[in-house]
């Protein structure tokens, strides 16, 4: 497959999935039995318990009293132009809010991903290299433990330990290492557990390949052999596993950001859902889906670049 064909296919896939998810989120909200106008009234006029009068004011000003198909058509047209409207709660442009929160999320996800890979690859390699040793057992138990404990629990423990007890990190603000390092570490831990297992298996598999054994028996030094021939083959399953890692990242974005009070996409999404801020919610869901799809596309491109065939 050529690069152009691959890109075209991916673009079509992204567009279809995005529209599908977006429509699902639209209908999920509008088909709920609850009185949306009333909910929004409560969200927008926070502090008062809402009443019918307020709900009617809201319903008219947001056009919620129009037929639902008209609302859907309107919304779809806007979405295709990347115009998600304004937040029902703050009155700000949704795109502006997504940019604001997306920038924050990217910051932690990027560093968290780098740190996670930096943690998982050496760990997995060491385990594979000394498979069956005590070191392997200890690291295996450790990564199994990390990957079974839900990351919100890890996050809560991290907050209690590093923020409350030791005072080495903070829970306010969105930048600065004092703020970010615990978040990055938590994300890194949550993805490294399983990733290191994948690396371990991949490396063991490659080391047992006949061509590797053959070279070893012929007296080629193992380190040199692995870098020259083993790495590329070991990388393949790891690259294939990346979409799963990205899925974990999305989950982390939502859960960890909430626990750490970090104002990224996931945090904003939880609050938009609570407030039934429909435009913001749909915008954020789209942003997360797009993020995921772009990441997997990147990893596919990488695979294609390395192996030049059967990219998908």
């Amino acid at each position: 497959m050529t690069l152009a064909a691959l890109l075209a296919r991916k673009a079509l896939l992204i567009l279809t999935i995005t529209l599908l998810v977006a429509s699902c989120s639209f209908w999920a909200v509008h088909l709920l039995p609850e009185n949306i106008a009333m909910q929004i009234a409560a969200a927008r006029f926070s502090g008062t318990e809402p009443n019918q009068q307020l709900a009617e004011v809201v319903s008219q000003s947001y056009g919620l009293d129009r037929p639902i198909l008209v609302q859907y058509a309107d919304w779809l047209a806007g979405t295709l132009k990347l115009d998600f409207g304004v937040s029902l709660v703050t009155g700000r442009d949704v795109v502006q809010d997504i940019a604001h929160h997306g920038q924050n999320s990217l910051r932690t996800v990027f560093w968290g991903f780098i740190a996670g890979v930096a943690l998982a690859v050496p760990t997995g390699y060491v385990c594979a290299r000394f498979a069956g040793s005590h070191l392997d057992t200890v690291l295996t138990v450790f990564s199994a433990a990390i990957s079974t404990i839900p990351s919100f629990l890890v996050a809560i423990v991290m907050v209690q330990l590093f923020v409350v007890e030791l005072g080495l990190a903070t829970l306010s603000g969105t930048s600065g290492w004092a703020r970010l390092w615990v978040l990055v570490l938590t994300i890194a831990l949550s993805i490294s557990g399983l990733l290191s297992r994948v690396v371990r298996t991949a490396v063991i598999d490659v080391r047992l390949q006949p061509f590797m054994l053959h070279a070893l028996i012929r007296g080629v030094p193992e380190r040199e052999l692995f870098w020259r021939h083993g790495l590329k083959n070991a990388l393949r399953p790891v690259l294939n596993y990346l979409p799963v890692v990205f899925m974990f990242l999305i989950y982390d974005v939502i859960v960890i950001e909430t626990v750490f009070n970090y104002h990224g996409l996931g945090w904003a999404l939880i609050n938009a859902v609570k407030a039934l801020d429909v435009p913001l919610m749909q915008g954020l869901v789209l942003a997360l889906v797009l993020f995921y799809l772009c990441c997997t596309t990147l990893s596919d491109l990488l695979t294609w670049r390395i192996y030049r065939h059967k990219a998908s």
Binding site: V159, T170, L171, V259, N261, N271, K274
Partner: peptide, 19 residues
């Protein structure tokens, strides 16, 4: 004035002297 919707986070922030 910080909007911190999570009660546990507010508590931790107070405890750590951040707010």
């Amino acid at each position: 004035y910080l909007f911190v919707p999570d009660a546990q986070a507010r508590q931790a922030m107070a405890q750590a002297g951040e707010v």
